[in-house]
Design a protein around this nucleic acid. Structure first.
Length: 581
DNA sequence: GCCGTTTTCGGCCCGACTGTTTTCAGTCG
């Protein structure tokens, strides 16, 4: 069982125990352990085999036993018994806004409700409003929630969430009385998907700002409105898709702004650690202040808060409690790579395969972005659905590249290919043809359903090929749509390190693959990362910024990213690699 | 269920808002 699968199982135990009315600290221990397991570096099986699980913070004796059973047998009788004792529909009820474990349990105990259908019927007949602790408003809210359930509570990709958040923020910035304002939450931490929007404003007078906020044209529905906090459902059309999200606005006094900014940026886990740090220093940190009964530490910015707690500034992307506090203590935080560091890209397509723009137009678009090189990597021959290039077309493309490079100034086209990794791990072109490219991106585009061990062997074999420069989209995942194929990434990263290969961060917001957690692992093993937009049009070249965000979440510095190097350096390195096994 | 310079018990982050209450429990982030 993989880390993610074990984490899912532990999360499920936590949720099921909540529905049984278990102590919240006990259920939280399961949810916490799920997170810990998911972010554990290295191979979980190995850790279990070495008996080192119990040494991990957050995993004690009982959880260690359960995880060991999960990893070694692939199942857990304790979880199966729990599942059998709780109707599956109850878990689904938890997703309705306003319904938590206590209310769902009460509905089940009092009215026998164990599905959305039964709950809907009970609300419509007025039964729910008659129960103790429930009322007419709760009943209406539940019905509303059932009506909206397909739109609300789902995560949204960052490329959709960001335009909606920005549209709201820009309007709020125009309200009279707004002093400072920012998008917080996971959006500020640049997570690949976002559940809701957190907007923070400082002002001396909150009420008029609230009144204006709930009347913005994007607002579909007001979910709640208090003196300092309002929640709405807001919608915007982004690239032809209607994006609907919950947006929460908080208004604080301006001297509270840095504390609130830090607090609402999260993550929750990072905040808990920071609060603990404050407690250790005899202070309390909350969204309004860093203080105790006798004194208050004034902070004008987030930097001041970190400094007051003995830490350098920690970038929002790092605030996940995955070691940033420890690294900060010893001044070992990375200077994160930024958009401006990128000087070219390697994985892109043109009209030769499934792109929509010519070689020249793509190269000129790169030049416009201030880049020195455009690496073209059209699909290889087997991928007929994407008009993969037969060898003759490859040679024709090379001739055109040579011609263009002679004409163009300020940007250089580099000859590459996105070569399919075939079923047996061999590559989709002959070694002779492969030798003619400056670099090769190797990617899987077929047979996604192979068993994990076979897929891992397939990709690792491809990585051992001397012509391969980098691995493309490592798991093939499509965020919120399709899980990646089953593959042991620990093994893949290790193999990349062994053969001196690079791994791509595919910057398409639908992929963002390699996932940031593994980016961090690749960095630790010295595997260079390449940020590639996988652009099929000039416009898509701009998507590289989402890849930079993943790189930042993965702790990468400029030096860890290959395409921060200049053209001469890149060409020299590619030539060197071609001669190296 | 985890954890320990209060180490085998008793804490575990904490505030805003809502709805149902008449002083507070539940939910959410």
């Amino acid at each position: 069982m993989s880390k993610d699968e074990v984490a899912d199982a532990l999360d499920e135990i936590g949720t099921l125990l909540e529905l049984k009315g278990e102590n919240a600290f006990r259920t939280n221990a399961y949810h916490n352990a799920a997170r810990v397991v998911q972010q554990l570096p290295g191979d979980l099986k190995q850790l279990v085999a070495d008996g080192k699980l119990g040494a991990v913070r957050g995993i004690g004796e009982a959880l260690s036993l359960k995880i060991t059973t999960l990893v070694t047998t692939g199942k857990l009788p304790y979880l199966e018994d729990l599942r059998a004792s709780i109707p599956a529909g109850m878990v689904e009820l938890l997703r309705l806004p306003g319904l938590g474990p206590k209310k769902v349990k009460a509905l089940h105990d009092l009215l026998g409700i164990d599905s959305i259908e039964k709950l809907k019927a009970a609300c419509e007949s007025g039964q729910v409003a008659k129960q103790k602790g429930f009322g007419a408003k709760t009943q209406d809210k539940i019905l509303e929630g059932i009506r909206f359930r397909d739109q609300v509570g789902h995560r949204v990709r960052i490329d959709y969430a960001l335009p909606l958040g920005t549209a709201l923020l820009e309007q709020i910035r125009g309200f009279p009385g707004v002093i400072r304002s920012e998008l917080c939450g996971s959006l500020r931490r640049r997570k690949e998907t976002v559940a809701d929007l957190d907007i923070l404003v400082s002002s001396a007078d909150a009420q008029p700002i609230m009144d204006r906020f709930v009347k913005l044209p994007e607002v579909l529905q007001v979910l709640g409105q208090g003196p300092t906090k309002s929640s709405v459902l807001a919608a915007l059309h982004v690239h032809g898709t209607k994006v609907t999200m919950q947006a929460d606005l908080r208004v604080v006094e301006d001297d509270q702004f840095p504390f609130a900014l830090h607090y609402f940026t999260g993550s929750k886990e990072h905040n808990i650690r920071m609060r603990q740090r404050a407690i250790d220093r005899g202070l309390t940190l909350n969204e309004y202040a860093l203080a105790n009964d006798s004194r208050s530490v004034p902070c004008k910015t987030e930097e001041d808060i970190f400094a007051a707690l003995g830490l350098p500034y920690i970038e929002p992307e790092l605030r996940e409690d995955t070691g940033e506090i420890e690294a900060g203590e010893v001044k070992k935080l990375p200077a994160l790579v930024a958009d401006r560091d990128i000087r070219g890209v390697f994985h892109n397509h043109t009209t030769y395969s499934d792109g929509v723009a010519s070689l020249e137009d793509m190269a000129l678009a790169c030049k416009k972005l201030g880049w020195e090189y455009f690496g073209v990597a059209d699909h290889s021959q087997s991928l007929t659905i994407a008009r993969g290039l037969p060898p003759g077309a490859v040679r024709k493309q090379w001739a055109e590249i040579d011609r263009l490079n002679a004409q163009l100034s300020g940007v250089r086209i580099i000859k590459g290919s996105e070569v399919d990794i075939l079923e047996d791990g061999s590559l989709d072109y002959s070694d002779e043809l492969l030798a003619g490219f400056d670099y090769v991106v190797a990617s899987v585009h077929s047979l996604f359903n192979m068993p994990e061990a076979d897929m891992t062997a397939r990709v690792c074999k491809a990585l051992s090929h001397p012509a391969v420069t980098m691995l493309g989209h490592a798991t093939g995942r499509l965020l919120l749509k399709r899980e990646g194929y089953k593959i042991n990434l620990d093994e893949v990263i290790k193999t990349a390190a062994t053969f001196g290969k690079m791994i791509e961060i595919n910057a398409q917001p639908s992929r963002l693959d390699l996932d940031w957690k593994y980016v961090k692992q690749a960095r630790a093993m010295g595997v260079p990362i390449v940020i590639n937009p996988d652009a099929h049009s000039p416009w898509e070249l701009g998507l590289y910024t989402f890849g930079v965000q993943v790189a930042r979440r993965g702790w990468l510095t400029k030096d860890d990213v290959f395409n921060t190097r200049g053209l001469d350096d890149v060409m020299k390195e590619l030539a060197r690699r071609k001669g190296v096994k």
